[in-house]
Amino acid sequence: MTTYSYQVFADYFQVVVMDEVSEEDFASLWTGENSEEWMIAIGNSTLGLGTLRNADVLLNVHVEPHEPAYSIDEFDHVIEASIHLPSGDLAIMGGSESLSVARRIKVPPGSYRLLYAVSGIETIQSEYEPAEDVYSLFIWPAKQKKTTLVKHWKASRIQKS
């Protein structure tokens, strides 16, 4: 496993993760039925990772050789989804940043499964104040599968898509 840690300005309450050659409009991805509720917008080769603060946030990206073992108790919010990375050049940027300043991670081209997990939600006092929230993305090579809400930070909101 390789882990990358980035401070990203989550402008518009999101961090964008995409294949560098993707031409998807990530703003339009937030129109899905569960996007805002589940804190994720999913395209074919682009993700919008929702955050609870419109500020600099810590994003840890874990590139795994296979599905990671984890305890659901470690996180407040967990989503499983898929992304296709045709070039293998993963770009990570804030909601208003341009691709030219994106952080980059090289992975083999192909289909990936991912786990988007959020912890430290209880430390957030307001959307602009410093907090200990951490946004984690685990990716590993795998076939595409249905998006699943595993755990919602508001426990009463669990539903399957």
Rank of each mutant, 00 (worst) to 15 (best):
H62L: 01
G88W: 13
G32Y: 14
I139T: 10
I139R: 15
S28C: 08
S100N: 10
W38Y: 09
N44W: 01
L85G: 05
S126D: 12
D133H: 07
I72C: 06
R103L: 02
S22H: 01
L29G: 03
W38V: 03
Y4E: 08
E129N: 08
S82C: 06
K151N: 11
R113I: 00
V61F: 00
I121V: 14
K145I: 01
L137M: 09
G32V: 10
D89E: 11
V17P: 00
P141R: 13
T46F: 03
V107N: 07
G110F: 05
E24V: 04
V150Y: 08
A131Y: 00
P130V: 01
V107C: 04
G110A: 06
Y112A: 02
Q14P: 02
Y116C: 11
I124D: 10
H62G: 03
Q7H: 11
H152K: 05
L29H: 07
A131F: 02
L114I: 03
D133L: 06
E20R: 13
Q7M: 07
W30Y: 05
H66Y: 12
V134E: 13
S28I: 12
Q144F: 00
F138D: 12
V16R: 10
W30R: 11
R103T: 03
A10K: 12
K143R: 15
R103G: 00
W140Q: 12
P130L: 01
M93W: 05
S96D: 06
Y70H: 13
V57D: 04
H84T: 03
E24N: 04
A142N: 13
K106M: 04
E122Q: 13
S45T: 02
V8K: 09
L137R: 13
S87E: 11
L115H: 10
L58F: 04
M1D: 09
S45C: 01
S136I: 06
I124K: 05
I40M: 08
T147E: 15
T31G: 07
S71K: 13
Y12L: 06
H77F: 00
S71L: 09
D11I: 08
T3A: 09
S45N: 02
W38R: 09
P109K: 15
S100V: 07
V118C: 11
S136M: 07
E37M: 08
M39D: 11
E127M: 07
F9T: 15
E33N: 14
L59I: 13
G110E: 11
A142I: 01
P141A: 10
D89V: 05
I72P: 05
A155P: 10
